[in-house]
Computed example of a mutant assay.
Amino acid sequence: MATAYQRTLIGDEGLTPTSWAGLTFPFGDRGPQPGELLTVMDGVRWWRVPMSGPLKHVNGLILDDGDALLAIDTGTASPRTTEAWRAILEGPLAGQRVGRILCTHMHPDHVGLAGWLSRRFDDAGIVMTRTEWLMVRMLAADARPEVPEEQLDFWRGAGWDEEQVARGAGRGWSNFGKMIARMPLTYTRIQNGDVMRIGGSDWHVVTGNGHSPEHACLVDYDRRVLIAGDQVLPKISSNISVHVSQTNDDPLGDWLTSIAKFKTLPEDLLVLPGHGDPFYGLHTRLDALRDEHIDRLDAIVDLMGEGPVRAVDCFKVLFRRPIGPDVIGMATGESLAHLCRLEVEGRAVREVKDGVWWFGRA
Rank of each mutant, 00 (worst) to 15 (best):
I62T: 08
E292H: 11
S118H: 02
L272S: 06
V356N: 05
V232L: 15
H211G: 12
V127D: 04
G31M: 14
V136E: 05
N239I: 03
R197H: 12
D67P: 07
P308V: 10
Q231S: 13
P108M: 05
Q96L: 10
T104Q: 15
E149A: 15
M183D: 00
C217T: 05
L55E: 00
R290N: 11
M51G: 00
W155N: 06
E162G: 01
I72N: 02
G199F: 03
L139N: 08
T81F: 10
G305P: 07
G200V: 02
E343C: 12
Q96T: 07
S174T: 14
V165C: 10
T186S: 15
M106P: 06
G170S: 11
G22C: 11
E351W: 06
L117V: 10
H243Q: 11
N175T: 10
W116V: 04
T3I: 03
G95A: 12
A348N: 02
V309W: 04
V40S: 08
G31F: 09
W46N: 08
R189N: 09
R144G: 14
V136C: 15
I294N: 03
M138K: 07
R197D: 03
W155V: 00
F154T: 02
I328F: 10
E36S: 08
V242Q: 09
S258L: 01
L61I: 02
L265F: 01
M179T: 12
E214I: 06
V301H: 05
H283K: 07
V206W: 02
D254E: 10
P79L: 06
V327C: 13
R296K: 15
D313S: 02
A71Q: 05
A124D: 02
G125M: 04
G276E: 03
R197C: 09
E345C: 00
W20L: 02
D326W: 00
V327Q: 03
A87F: 06
I198A: 07
H293N: 12
G35Q: 12
Q164Y: 05
D220W: 00
D220N: 15
W85R: 11
R144H: 09
T81N: 07
W85Y: 12
R97A: 02
A228I: 10
A2V: 13
P54H: 04
W357K: 06
F319D: 01
L93V: 04
K353Q: 13
G200M: 01
R224G: 01
F25A: 06
F27W: 13
R189H: 05
G11S: 11
Y280P: 01
V205Q: 05
P34H: 09
G355L: 10
L63Y: 03
D65Y: 07
E36A: 13
T8N: 11
D73R: 04
A260N: 07
Q246R: 15
A260M: 07
E292C: 11
L286T: 03
A114M: 10
L9M: 13
